[in-house]
């Protein structure tokens, strides 16, 4: 028997219809409650979602040097890794060895969306990574572990050990220069050539000679020169040039007698391209790594390296 429904209170509405209406009303109420609880969930999850988005946007790759897992650094690393989680800086960790090809490793990870490579170690670790990978399009960070051999962290204004995580989280990025050696490898801090008879050509425009004497040569970028007497005032890693410091060795009776080297006052030249050559091979130390060269071309990559730096940086 069909009936017409005019209102829920209409006595002519059948019981079956009234039951159907009541069930619909109950479903509406429960749906509203569900929507309210989902809204509450989204509201509380929003900050975490932002963190996850941030982590995804800046996806981190950590390159650990082998010594950071050994004592006395184990406790420091435990705190560091806890801070990675607390600050939303978690990422993939890879331990590097002297035989690791850091460049191909980073290139592989770039394909998976890595945006930030953090070197965890000391000056030597940074040199190992940067010597082949400085030209990659990625932001570099540093967690300096230990109290020794971390002068680079000091120059960049990055505190040591777990405090470096705060700098990493703040993510202040600066573009700095780096040096290119023979169009093959890179250096970040300095180059040093001790006592060789060198011919030095700057920017293809002038030649520097020191007569027949041996010279000590240093190129500084992010670390003060190792040449004694030069102040850190010559640190300018964002001016698009490098500085070469040349100190001729002075031969004399006293220096021969006491087997001590005497040097005359140093000369300083800024350059974009430097050609250093010698009749005999000489030992060159770039970022702490020694090689034997007979001719070296040093150029600058101006403001091409993206580095996370701290407030107390020296530039």
């Amino acid at each position: 028997m069909k009936t017409t429904i005019s209102s829920a209170k209409n006595p002519n509405v059948s019981v079956r219809t009234a039951r159907r209406v009541a069930q619909s009303a109950a479903r509406i109420v429960s749906a509203r409650n569900e929507i309210a609880s989902i809204r509450e969930l989204v509201r509380t999850a929003r900050p975490h979602l932002a963190e996850v988005a941030n982590a995804r946007n800046n996806a981190y790759l950590y390159l650990y040097d082998s010594f950071v897992r050994e004592s006395p650094h184990k406790d420091v690393m435990r705190i560091v890794e806890k801070r990675f989680v607390d600050f939303g800086l978690s990422g993939k960790v890879i331990r590097i060895t002297p035989f690791t090809n850091c460049r191909s490793l980073i290139e592989d990870e770039l394909r998976y969306g890595v945006k930030t490579v953090v070197v965890v170690g000391n000056n030597e670790t940074v040199a190992k990574v940067m010597s082949r990978a400085a030209d990659l399009d990625v932001v570099f960070g540093l967690i300096a572990v230990g109290k020794k051999d971390n002068e680079l962290a000091e120059s960049l204004g990055i505190p040591l050990n777990e405090e470096a995580c705060n700098t990493l989280a703040a993510r202040k990025i600066e573009l700095v220069d780096y040096g290119v050696i023979n169009n093959q490898r890179f250096f970040l801090t300095s180059i040093h050539i001790q006592n060789a008879r060198l011919r030095i050509t700057c920017d293809n425009t002038f030649v520097v000679k020191a007569d027949k004497e041996n010279v000590e040569l240093a190129v500084s970028n992010l670390l003060p020169s190792s040449v004694q007497g030069m102040t850190k005032g010559f640190l300018h890693p964002q001016d698009g040039k490098l500085e070469v410091i040349i100190r001729p060795q002075v031969s004399g009776v006293l220096s021969g007698l006491f087997n001590r080297r005497a040097y005359s006052k140093p000369s300083v030249f800024p350059f974009r391209r430097l050609l250093v050559s010698a009749a005999r091979p000489f030992v060159m130390t770039a970022d702490g790594r020694e090689t034997q060269e007979s001719s070296v071309e040093i150029t600058v990559a101006p403001k091409k390296l993206k580095m996370i730096v701290g407030k107390e940086r020296r530039f």
Binding site: P248, S264, P266
Partner: peptide, 23 residues
């Protein structure tokens, strides 16, 4: 002196060529 000097040609050094500097 110090930070403001950009280029220094020391006493035992000879420079030959076109020497151009901004500082």
């Amino acid at each position: 002196g110090g930070d403001d000097v950009e280029t220094i040609v020391g006493p035992s050094v000879r420079v030959e060529g076109d020497f151009v500097s901004q500082g």
